[in-house]
Nucleic acid binder design. Structure first.
Length: 294
DNA sequence: TGCCTTAGGCCTTTAAGATT
DNA sequence: AATCTTAAAGGCCTAAGGCA
């Protein structure tokens, strides 16, 4: 049993598709097919159920995958820990975020002023298959996960209603969400945190939002809101506070519209000194951030 | 029939170990 | 140190089977 075979096995198991797994591994499909076959020969059992149409993990394969993932995580942890023992902390931090893309650049910039040697691998959104591969995840809480994770809250923010300036409600100082039931909404694509939040809060109020613009790009959504192209639920802090001159931000009296952003990490994964430094830095950063806003 | 899939044959390249 | 041997990885080509 070779390390390379195990890495290939994980990729095939996660895709359950030889050709796509081979593309991701940047080897030819026949080479991968043979490597998997020789792994099966060396462990003495079939790991996949094969037809001419598809390849699928069988019960042996699923059990093997669980253990191989753990084993490779341990090896990876060991390697990172060894590197960590050398000199100053400089281990790259793999940071995934599903929210707060407007405030993360400033956070990273402030951190790197203090720790210029520490580099980052940034990823927006968590991949939909396999074990999540991040040191830290910045997301909305509570966070559901199949693996064992720990969490620290970073900030709780109000959600405002962005409304075009020339709208009759725009003169108000606050609003009840039900008053926006008949409006045209702008939001992010289904599955994003802001979209889920929008739908959840509207449902709570008793209506389904009529979404006329949706995009996977937060800048576009924010731009459309700024242009007064519709109403939108707008996170007060992480979407940058102010908005363009064509919209105003109104506090919502009812229901309570808030969300908490937090940091999540996998408790089975080695936490490098770099990661530990960044974690502490981010907590302090957001503490100062919210007290400045008050 | 044409397209897509997995898998086998045969080849070259590469790396590690053995031998001179 | 240079050369030879061996094993494994991986690429190209292609066969076989399912499906629309």
């Amino acid at each position: 049993m070779e390390l390379l075979q195990l890495k290939y096995f994980i990729t095939v198991a996660r895709h359950e598709h030889m050709t796509r797994a081979a593309e991701q591994l940047r080897i030819s499909q026949p080479a991968l097919s043979r490597t998997i076959a020789s792994l099966e020969q060396s462990v003495g059992v079939q790991l996949f159920e094969r037809t001419s149409k598809y390849i699928k993990l069988n019960a042996h394969g699923r059990s093997f995958l669980k253990n191989v993932e753990q084993a490779l995580t341990i090896l990876d942890n060991a390697e990172r820990e060894l590197r960590d023992l050398e000199g100053e902390p400089a281990e790259p931090i793999s940071l995934t975020f599903t929210v707060a893309s407007y405030v993360i650049p400033a956070l990273l910039s402030a951190f790197r002023k203090k720790h210029p040697r520490i580099t980052f691998r940034l990823q927006q959104n968590v991949p939909s298959y396999g074990q999540p591969d991040f040191d830290l995840l910045i997301t909305s809480l509570p966070y559901q996960s199949s693996s064992e994770t720990a969490t620290v809250p970073l900030l709780t923010e109000d959600i405002f209603l962005a409304i075009p300036c020339d709208h009759p409600l725009a003169k108000r100082t606050s609003i009840r969400l039900e008053e926006a039931a008949g409006e045209e909404f702008i939001s992010l694509r289904r599955g994003s945190n802001l979209r889920e939040l929008t739908e959840h809060l509207c449902r709570l109020t008793g209506f389904a939002p009529n979404i006329v613009f949706e995009s996977d790009n937060p800048s576009i959504v924010r731009g459309l809101i700024g242009e007064g192209q519709g109403v939108a639920l707008f996170p007060a802090v992480t979407w940058g506070g102010s908005i363009g001159s064509s919209s105003v931000l109104l506090p919502i009296e009812e229901p309570v519209c808030k969300r908490t952003i937090g940091m999540v990490w996998n408790t089975n994964r080695y936490v490098s000194r770099s990661t530990e430094l960044f974690k502490e830095f981010a907590v302090r950063y957001f503490n100062n951030f919210t007290s400045e806003l008050r």
